[in-house]
């Protein structure tokens, strides 16, 4: 479960106040809103990458409001993916496991199957197509079995057929992992294809 209560935060060009929403455990929520209205900022706050002015954030029964990003157990896929260019695909997938001192081999193989990227393991990230890179970023975020998955406009940069393909990847990830997901987008079709819960963000000031 993701439970956000009376969240207020300020960015360079706007402020958001009194944001509240709940995503039930295991649900796939799509947060809609036009570009620049603060969706990304909210995700950053959930990850612990942005200080908030007030409010609380719960993941399940855990109050993570004051925790550093590493301790929130959150999988984050930013819009630009930010894959590690100095590591190959396998190393990217294993990164979060190594950082936590967990064994990686078996889990990485598992992710390769789940996301259909086993044949990319030895590749560098520079040569990946948009859809491939997206799957690797998703796998990297899921590797350590986070309780919450946050996706920032994951499909906006993809062409239509790749997007359809990613819709089915995301559906199967959801079926197989049951991770509580918050997917931020401005694309209505993402919500139609994936959402159990649709949230809309209006009126950033």
């Amino acid at each position: 479960m993701i439970k956000v209560s009376s969240l207020s935060l300020r960015a360079d060009s706007f402020a958001l106040s009194d944001i509240a929403f709940t995503v039930p455990t295991g649900a796939y929520a799509v947060l809609m809103g036009r570009s620049g209205c603060g969706k990304t900022t909210i995700l950053e706050a959930l990850c612990g990458l942005r200080t908030i002015q007030s409010g609380t954030i719960y993941f399940g029964s855990r109050d993570v409001t004051a925790l550093p990003p590493a301790e929130r157990n959150v999988g984050y896929v930013p819009q630009d993916l930010a894959l590690f260019p100095h590591l190959n695909v396998r190393e990217n997938l294993a990164f979060g496991l190594h950082a936590r001192g967990l064994p990686s081999e078996e889990r990485v193989e598992e992710l390769g199957v789940l996301l259909g990227i086993s044949d990319l393991f030895g590749r560098t990230t520079a040569g990946l197509s948009g859809g491939e890179a997206q799957r690797v970023a998703l796998g990297r975020a899921l590797a350590f079995r986070p309780s919450v998955l946050l996706l920032d406009e994951p499909l906006s940069a993809l062409d239509e057929s790749t997007r359809d393909e990613m819709h089915s990847v995301l559906r199967s990830v959801r079926e197989k992992t049951g991770v509580t997901t918050l997917h931020v987008t401005h694309l209505r079709e993402d919500a139609k294809a994936l959402a159990d819960v649709v949230l809309e963000l209006h009126g950033a000031k």
Partner: peptide
């Protein structure tokens, strides 16, 4: 930042 969310200090 992504590295931080993945568990790095």
């Amino acid at each position: 930042e992504v590295a931080l969310t993945l568990g790095c200090t």
